[in-house]
Amino acid sequence: MTTSVDRVAGPAPARRPPGVLRRLRKDWWIYLFLLPTVLGYGAYTVYPLVASWWFALLDWPGFADQGTFVGIENFERLVADDLFWNSFRNSLVFLVCAVPLRVGLALVLALLLNRRNTPFKGFLRTLYFLPVVTTGAIIGVAFTLLLDAGGPISLALVESGLLDSPVNFVADTGTSLFSGAAVWVWKWLGITMIYWLAALQTIPQEVHEAAMIDGAGPGREFVHITLPLLIPFLVIITLIDTVGALNVFDLLYTLTAGGPAFSSEVIEIFIFRTAFGATVPQLGYASAAAVLFGLITMGIAVAQALGVRWARRATGAMR
């Protein structure tokens, strides 16, 4: 997705650039076209970003009209707040468990569905994709019933002998976060599978045929030919899914609300709880948490974007 940035340069007139003012006057309509985006984006994306930095420096109880400036006190408290680090850790655990599972399982499914001799591909693909279009918040609520100790999942596991006794998946400190991760993978697997199918279609048929002529089996063909070609996609898809894994508020908030005892409280729920849910709401403190986590997220994104660039260069050299 990031790649189109390079392409938007578009066809460029090669004439000598006229004076700035004259250009601005000649191109007034361009700025008119941009106006909705610039206004909207400025007000609803850039301003909030800047404002949350300012709010992070305030002591601002939610029931007061405005905050008082306290410098970096919020950050100092944050660093000492076990619950912030708890939610940070939960977000990371969620990321590390759920993203590889989603990316890997989706790749396996895509490979199987991409085989010429698998019947009913379209039908299967539809079924896998169905949860993607559903509403996360509603899925969260529905799964509180499905994952109840008396619900069908627990019951099926007990009857099949996989469990000795019913488990309250979402109300157990040991399983709540992982239940959330499992539901998230279930919900979003289909879209990652489509990404992979799109990626697989970019591999020319000749590559496959050449491998067959060389006598490579399907396993060897995958490891030596398909896999290297997929690496740039692997990085992009992992990046997209990682960002997705940091946007799990709707699903987790409705499934576990971060509980029991904060065992599934990810950073977004921490922010929401601090800002809106607590008996003493603290907007400044919540903003500081948002800022800190936003920085970390951006760090991850930048690291991965660099990864994309590196992978593209590496594969480019190979071709």
């Binding site: 157990d172 400190t173 399983t175 029991p260």
Partner: peptide
Amino acid sequence: MRPVQPTIGILVQSALSGA
């Protein structure tokens, strides 16, 4: 006074839910 976490209720909750 700011809320101190985990509260007694949360402690009992975690003990009752497997911790």
